[in-house]
Simulated scan of single mutants.
Amino acid sequence: MVLFDFSDYGQLLPLVTNSLIAGALLALVGGLIGIFVMNRDMSFAVHGISELSFAGAAFALLAGVNVVFGSVIGSIAAALIIGALGAKAKERNSIVAVLMPAGLGLGILALALYEGRAANKFGLLTGQIVAVDDPQLAWLAGICLVVLITLALVWRPLNFASLDPDVAAARGVPTRTLSVVFMLLLGLAVAASVQVVGALLVLSLLVTPAAAALRLTASPVLAPMLSVVFAVTSVIGGILLALGAGLPISPYVTTISFLIYAVARVIERIKK
């Protein structure tokens, strides 16, 4: 069995141009958002949002409308529910635990009713390297632009509120408003990421690179930069390897992401 075949790479690369662009944009957003996800202890919430994002995308596929739009609606709904009802970590985890099976169940129901190509169903769960067409790329680019501009505007107060919410609130930082804004940004980032890596493995883009970066440095400048580099390496590397193997993108993205994290843990241990 041949795992990789790069003999016709020149003919195959044009097929994934949109996916490479989308992957780079999502890695940039995921690497930056991931730092706040880690600092705010919301890794589990990412998974919960991704399940409702998957449900929204699945129903959009069933209805024959834009899949990215359905994914965004599902993600934002989940983000608002978690943000409104889960002020404390314990409450938030309970809400996420309820949302995850509900979203997954609804999504599977929609896919069971969908009579189109099986690859479209499978791609929502595990990602597809040639699934990003021009309209979807435009949607994804727009989402990423909104997230990046908003992050730039609220970066400093959001970072303060994430690291020390009590002191930030005492200093007059609008922590509650920032929390809602961040949940909406997280919802958008998850919705966009689902289109490339799939709903089941979105953590590999929004959590693992940031977790690896924070193992190497606590610098508020260097950590986001490393997180973005790790995310870009995972996504672009995963797409290129998947192209040579003719398999779904997600196993490669997750494997590269995990290896980066494992190396970061080893370096952290050596430094100590």
Rank of each mutant, 00 (worst) to 15 (best):
V2N: 11
V2C: 07
D8H: 06
Y9C: 00
G10Q: 10
Q11I: 09
L12W: 07
L13W: 13
P14V: 13
V16N: 05
T17P: 00
N18G: 08
S19L: 04
I21D: 08
A22L: 06
G23F: 10
A24E: 04
L28E: 06
V29L: 01
V29T: 06
L32Q: 10
I33T: 13
I33H: 12
G34D: 01
G34S: 01
V37C: 01
M38K: 05
S43M: 14
F44A: 03
V46T: 08
V46I: 15
V46F: 07
H47C: 11
S50R: 07
E51M: 12
E51G: 04
F54L: 02
A58N: 13
F59M: 06
A60V: 14
L61G: 04
G64N: 08
V65M: 14
V72M: 08
I73M: 15
I73L: 15
G74E: 12
A79Y: 10
A79S: 15
A79M: 08
G83F: 04
A87C: 04
A87D: 15
A87E: 15
K88N: 15
K90Q: 12
K90I: 14
N93K: 09
N93M: 07
S94A: 11
A97M: 13
A97R: 03
L104T: 08
G107M: 10
A119G: 06
K121C: 06
F122T: 12
T126K: 00
T126V: 09
G127S: 02
V130T: 15
V132Q: 01
D133N: 12
A138Y: 09
A138N: 02
G142T: 01
G142F: 01
I143R: 01
C144F: 07
L148E: 06
T150S: 02
T150E: 02
L151K: 13
L151P: 14
A152T: 01
L153P: 02
L153R: 15
R156G: 02
L163I: 09
D166E: 10
R171L: 14
R171Q: 10
V180S: 04
L186E: 02
A189T: 09
V194L: 09
Q195S: 07
Q195M: 08
V196K: 00
L201V: 03
V202P: 00
L203M: 09
L203Y: 07
V207M: 00
P209W: 09
A210L: 06
A211W: 04
A213D: 02
R215G: 11
L216V: 07
T217P: 00
A218H: 05
L222D: 00
L222C: 00
A223M: 05
P224Q: 15
L226M: 14
S227F: 02
S227D: 02
V228K: 08
V229Q: 08
A231S: 10
T233A: 09
T233M: 07
I236T: 02
G237M: 02
G238K: 01
L241C: 04
A242N: 04
L243Q: 13
G244M: 07
G246R: 14
P251A: 14
V253C: 10
V253F: 12
I256E: 00
L259D: 07
A262L: 11
V263C: 01
V266H: 08
I267W: 08
I270V: 09
K271R: 13
K271P: 00
